[in-house]
Design a protein around this nucleic acid. Structure first.
Lengths: 199, 199
DNA sequence: AGCATTAGGAACCATTCAGTACAAAACACG
DNA sequence: CGTGTTTTGTACTGAATGGTTCCTAATGCT
């Protein structure tokens, strides 16, 4: 009954995610988005309302792709020891950063920018971060070496790892060559072995 | 010989630091700076050339104030054990964040934003971060509990702490209430005791 | 007093931004 | 083959940006 869409919503959103991931919310200009997504102003505003709404949709897409992937690694039953899952997760992001991927984590970038002052965005970011927190905690629970840890200790370890995650993602994004990423995986191992109760 | 300045360069820079600290480089608009510094466009451009140059001067001021303060805490001979100095430094920033100071670290914010793609800014930020790294290493060297650590182990610990520092400052800035700051000081203690070689 | 020098302030410029309005185009259906 | 509906594309709006350029007024020195 009417003219059909010339673009697929799904791929347009994936491309929008790419633009926001690279530039961040504020610094991604509308022209950036339009060329990146391959459509024009009218179509974008008709299909996604406005920039902020588009970003919120993209944020949820990011969660269901990047965050969920990390959380799945942290819950991967094929790797019996939760410790190994944690290391795998960090090794993934460190490898990406050292291979020239300086996009970091869209969630972290959003949290860092002034976009986080918007309540809607802040809430979505909070949701994603909490998911990461839960994933880390699940992996800790699945690690024999942490069997003796109390609940507060487990939470503290999860939070330390999440803070480390955020710090590393910001470092990846900053392109600062402080030599941190080179041995960051070993550093994570140090944290894990140090956190375990030793006889 | 000529009309004297109606403003003191020093206090104008301190106020500019306040504005940049709160908003970040890109998001601090010229009107923000002008009202915050209490002068007008003409004077600003005459005295500081342009916005970027002003920011570079402010960055160095921030280093010589905030960063140096942290590094001095890390080198404070009145606290004999370097471990205690590290905890003191972190307790300071955690207390600030929990008391409603959500400015975080100007260096970290600059590194996170797209300002870091400017080589001049990136270099100044790098310089400040390296200073922090050195301060942490000095404190580690001054801690008996780390006497047995090898040099690579010390460096890794310093980098872990710097990453934690960056992560915490970003969390402080993000206003995210993930319950991390509440026990962040204990978490740092966990890292430190875990890093020491135990018999 | 007079002159050189500087701050102050306002007007201005070009650019960019997100967002809107509207006409033309493309399709599906009767 | 039209008719009606929706997408497109483009031109436009109004605001805000960083940056510049004046002119005037204030000041200190000779």
């Amino acid at each position: 009954m009417a003219r059909p869409r010339a673009f697929e919503t799904k791929v347009a959103l994936e491309r929008a995610m790419g633009v926001f991931w690279q530039f961040g919310y504020e610094e991604a200009s509308l022209p950036d988005l339009l060329t990146g997504m391959g459509l024009t102003r009218g179509s974008l505003y008709k299909a996604f309302k406005d920039k902020k709404n588009l970003f919120l949709i993209v944020l949820e897409l990011y969660e269901s792709v990047a965050v969920d992937a990390a959380v799945e690694t942290l819950n991967d039953k094929d790797t019996p020891d939760g410790r190994d899952r944690i290391i795998q997760m960090f090794e993934g992001l460190i490898a990406a950063a050292m291979n020239g991927d300086h996009r970091g984590c869209l969630l972290c970038t959003a949290a860092a920018g002034s976009a986080s002052s918007d309540p809607d965005i802040a809430q979505t970011v909070h949701q994603g971060m909490t998911k990461m927190q839960g994933g880390l905690l699940a992996a800790i629970d699945a690690a024999p070496m942490f069997a003796d840890l109390s609940n507060p200790e487990r939470n503290r370890l999860a939070n330390t790892l999440l803070t480390q995650y955020i710090g590393l993602q910001m470092l990846a994004r900053s392109r600062l060559s402080l030599g941190i990423l080179q041995h960051a995986a070993d550093a994570i191992e140090d944290i894990l072995t140090g956190a375990a109760h030793r006889p």
